[in-house]
Design a protein around this nucleic acid. Structure first.
Lengths: 128, 128
DNA sequence: CTTGACCTTCCGGTGACTGGAACCCCTATG
DNA sequence: CATAGGGGTTCCAGTCACCGGAAGGTCAAG
């Protein structure tokens, strides 16, 4: 399989796949013409990575998850730990955004949004 | 005022203040010894920037907000528009994170997290 | 005179890619 | 056989908003 087909089937852009090779997440072989030659197992790995990334796992988390996936003797506790930490980070991020959202929403509501210069949003940013 | 005092009073790290000068958000004068010399107005600007950044506005949004703040003839609609767009982005981000959170939370709950290798998290990432 | 706390600039790195340039390879068509 | 196109390749630079660190200048106190 060339990179184009793998891109299509994995849903990852070719650029991303090359990048993943560069950082050692996949190691396709090479054809005589120098093209990357992907096996089914490479495609499988890339799909795994794509799904992990879509859940927001960092590249390093993905690397660790892949290693655990391929380690038959893994303890599910190790996987769960990574996922739990990630979940905690997400919760923290949501809380942070939610707090911004609340403030911002109040400000937007309080602003007339017309041709006049008076603006509670600017007043809030400037004061305090 | 030297940068240290401004940093303390604005809550921004010196590195950040230098960076803001570099990209033209503040333009302190210079003392004879080459040190940056900040006026009260610079401090005020930096505090404004710090609060806008803490609400998640991008640097370019901050630049625009500052310009509006200093434009006596502004229309509050312009400010509101920036804030509303930012609010929309935040809502989108929260929705994205919330969706990740939901999936991830289910996966974490379903994983025993013990010494055994069987793991629904990895199964989910690998399958589909 | 030295110490230590400031300040300066400059360079490189962060995360996870993305865009673009310059070039090679392969197949099909005129 | 030349060429056009649609693959592929590498390498470099840029993104965003800074942060860390090195090498060195400045200043007040002891």
């Amino acid at each position: 399989m060339n990179i184009g087909e793998v891109a299509e089937r994995s849903g990852l852009p070719p650029k991303t796949i090359r990048y993943y090779e560069e950082i050692g997440l996949v190691t396709p072989t090479r054809s005589v013409n120098g093209y990357r030659a992907f096996r089914e197992s490479d495609l499988h790995k890339l799909a795994f990575l794509g799904r992990a990334r879509s859940l927001g796992f960092s590249i390093e988390d993905c690397r660790a998850l892949m290693a655990l996936y391929e380690d038959q003797g893994r303890a599910s506790a190790d996987v769960k730990s990574i996922a739990q930490h990630h979940l905690d980070r997400i919760d923290a991020k949501i809380a942070e955004l939610q707090s911004m959202r609340d403030t911002l929403s109040d400000l937007v509501k309080s602003c007339a949004g017309d041709h006049r210069p008076d603006c509670p949003i600017l007043r809030d940013l400037a004061a305090k």
